[in-house]
Design a binder for these strands. Structure first.
Lengths: 342, 342
DNA sequence: CTGAAAGCGCTTACAG
DNA sequence: CTGAAAGCGCTTACAG
């Protein structure tokens, strides 16, 4: 009971002593890979329950067993999109016996070495800025990897999971939604980044915007894409500048709800009414949408479905890797949520 | 290069071979706890850099070294409050060499055994529903624990960190803010829970609401507290029912911004104008506030400051536990953010 | 059917 | 100053 000393963690030996069997026997009942006399098995099981024993994860992992730890690498941990996703993944993972670690996409060279200390049973990459060669390195090293297709991963080879979360089709539908309202002069609002480096054409949402615009015969050159800002204020300023330069958008598509709402504010700032003068559409269907004014029309992402797919792939990759002979793929869909901003 | 085979993780032996020294020497230069001839040290260092070697975390932890893993237990992973907090903690933790795992507060009896497999160097508890006796068990077992004081933890003994994030004082200031606007008939909106079990008096925000009301001579009996709902719709219905029963609030305080905004919607639903008829105040200063209509006045929480305090305490607890002779405490402050809903 | 033993990748007290 | 060796808590091939 002395907090300073620390209660000794209970080990396999304690169970063996308590149950009156060899340590070997304890291992075999835990791993269930050898017949053990029913009566001994029972005594061991009781000892385990009584003492609340859990095999030391470290020791098991050292002997080649799983660490039961997954890592999720994200770039916008703060956002509601990842919040929901993590929450769903955590729920499913916990039931499968896993813990999930969360990590922003750190830029230092050492990052990959650190995550590759044989610690994680699998890695989920949901960051658009994680370098491709590092992803390839992980896959080549045999680490189970599941990629959330925020950007194009066509160049990645090997056995891994790839989840297309419907961003591209969703973006196209956003454009069509604006178009159906008679909007012809669209503006895409890119993300805010620390370094002011925006998305490139490998970004599914931007790509969807451009290609659907082309399909519909709408312009989508660089005047129609606002990018390169590092803060909310810079976004507002960039928008105002674009308008001052004579560009008059009648439809605004935000890369996510937060950005779309900032676009809405920017519109009002230069005197446009939403949705009378300009339609605004977001992406994510986050809580923000319902409470904005007017409520934001948006493209909903089903994080629960994504989480289920992630876990399904992870389990395949971890437990049945040798049975796979090509990458696993899944295509999910977004869903338009009509409110009043379009 | 064969993805199926997997590149063998590089071990201490590889470094020893590469540098032409004993494995022992490699360990000593890594841990820096013995003099090693400058020239050997240099060769080892070069080999480490060249091969990108990282000591196996599992093996080190098995020998009593740190696992460099922290666990954060939260109850509302989805929310923006935790999103920001995690994001900040992750940033600081990464620089200190830690990864942080995230976990909802699972209810099964086995949860504590699972987290107590000697895996985590420390545990941060930000969940109001984590059972007190389990917290005490962890602390008694010598696990470094930092508690975010969402509720009252006066009964926990031993050496641990306790961070009062200013919820109580913040809640009181919310009440005063409403009061200053002449609001006398206040309504506290509690959280939405899965089981419909609301907060008790150990909850700092509720406690602050009740006690400041008393100080100001305002009523704060159960008619002034709305609780026990399991969904947004139930909240709206409960609000309408309370009003139908003849209770006419002129000030609404939400437990967080999301709840406050729901309260705002509820007000409108029964025909009240905000802020003309009723003032609404939230808690968190999340993105929601800025985009609501009218923009929500709220109590800001500084997650960055909380994260810094958490890490500072964690490091003390992990690296200098023996030097502590009582629990570590910190008091942080919330900050009123005036907008237009009060 | 079952136990003693090797070994996973490390750290560090021990003995030169 | 430095190496061989014990041992952390496990798993499982090996030899009864």
């Amino acid at each position: 009971m002395n907090a300073r000393k620390g209660l000794r963690p209970i080990t396999r030996k304690d169970i063996a002593d308590e149950a009156g069997v060899t340590e070997t026997i304890v291992s075999y009942v835990i791993n269930g890979n050898r017949y053990v006399k029913e009566e001994k098995r029972k005594r061991v099981q009781e000892a385990i329950d009584k003492l609340g024993y859990r095999p030391n994860t470290m020791a098991r992992a050292l002997k080649g067993k799983k660490s039961n730890h997954l890592l999720l690498i994200a770039d916008d941990i703060k956002g509601e999109y990842f919040g929901k996703l993590i929450s769903e993944i955590d729920g499913l993972a916990y039931n499968e016996g896993y813990f999930v670690s969360l990590c922003a996409d750190h830029k230092d060279e050492d990052f990959v070495n650190r995550i590759y200390s044989k610690f994680f049973d699998g890695i989920i990459i949901g960051s658009a800025s994680f370098p491709l060669y590092n992803i390839q390195r992980l896959i080549d090293a045999g680490v189970p990897v599941v990629l959330l297709e925020i950007r194009d991963y066509y160049s990645i080879n090997g056995i891994y999971g790839l989840i297309n979360t419907g961003l591209y089709d969703g973006a196209r539908e956003c454009v069509r939604t604006l178009y159906r309202k008679g909007r012809k002069n669209l503006l895409f609002l890119d993300r805010i980044t620390v370094d002011g480096k925006g998305s490139d054409m490998d970004d599914w949402r931007l790509k969807g915007f451009i290609e659907e615009s082309a399909t519909l015969g709408l312009e989508s050159d660089e005047r129609h894409i606002l990018t390169g800002y590092r803060s909310e204020d810079e976004l507002l300023a960039a928008f105002a500048a674009r308008v001052a330069n004579g560009f008059v958008p009648d439809g605004v598509m935000g890369r996510n709800d937060h950005i779309a709402l900032l676009g809405m504010a920017a519109c009002r700032q230069v005197g446009y009414r939403v949705p009378e003068d300009v339609s605004v559409i977001g992406f994510d269907n986050s809580r923000l949408c319902k409470f904005s004014h007017p409520p934001l029309t948006t493209m909903g992402i089903d994080q629960r479905e994504i989480a289920k797919t992630v876990m399904r792939m992870m389990v395949s990759l971890i437990d049945h890797k040798s049975e796979q002979d090509s990458r696993l793929e899944a295509y999910l869909h977004t869903q338009l949520v009509m409110r009043e901003s379009v």
